Computed example of a mutant assay.
Amino acid sequence: MTTTLEQLDTEGDLRAVVELPWRTIVWDDPVNLMTYVSYVFRSYFGYQRDEAERLMLLVHTEGRAIVAVGNREAMERHAQAMHGYGLQATVARDEP
């Protein structure tokens, strides 16, 4: 009986991990201008100027910024799009 309860708890923990959203992270690089990064955030993600500049400043000062959160496939598409613009981007699981 104990084994069954332990399996249920393990399955619940696994399900909680699987349901965590993913995030697209844009990283700082020595190549792209800050104005260009802001432009990419506005044109691709549709962010307003203030939000695009806030995210761009995070990339510049903190070295990275989370620019989108959602399901894995969508976040991978965003990262690929950022690569197409010449930006460094990765996908990671969102932290609980």
Rank of each mutant, 00 (worst) to 15 (best):
T3D: 15
V67P: 02
L57M: 15
M56I: 11
G84W: 09
Q80Y: 03
W27Y: 14
D50M: 04
L58P: 01
V69Q: 07
H78M: 07
M34H: 13
V40D: 08
R54E: 11
T3P: 07
H78Q: 07
D29L: 08
G84H: 09
R49W: 05
T3I: 12
A79N: 04
V69L: 09
N32R: 13
R72I: 07
T24Q: 04
D9R: 13
G63Y: 01
E62G: 04
D28I: 01
T24W: 03
Y44K: 11
V31K: 09
A92P: 01
L5R: 11
Q80G: 08
E6H: 08
A16Q: 09
A79R: 05
V31D: 00
R77F: 13
E73Q: 12
L20K: 15
M1Y: 09
V69E: 07
G84Y: 10
W27T: 06
R93I: 14
Q7I: 13
F41M: 14
G70K: 14
W22V: 10
V67G: 03
A79H: 07
E19N: 11
D50G: 03
R42K: 15
V69W: 01
L14G: 06
P30K: 08
D94T: 02
Y39M: 08
R64Y: 05
N71V: 09
A74E: 15
M1T: 10
F45H: 15
Y47E: 05
N71D: 15
E11C: 00
W22E: 04
Y47K: 12
G70I: 13
D94C: 10
V26R: 09
L55Q: 05
A89T: 04
L87K: 02
D13F: 09
Q80V: 06
V40K: 00
D9T: 10
L14S: 14
G86C: 11
A52S: 14
T90I: 00
A79K: 02
V26C: 07
F41A: 10
N32C: 09
R49C: 00
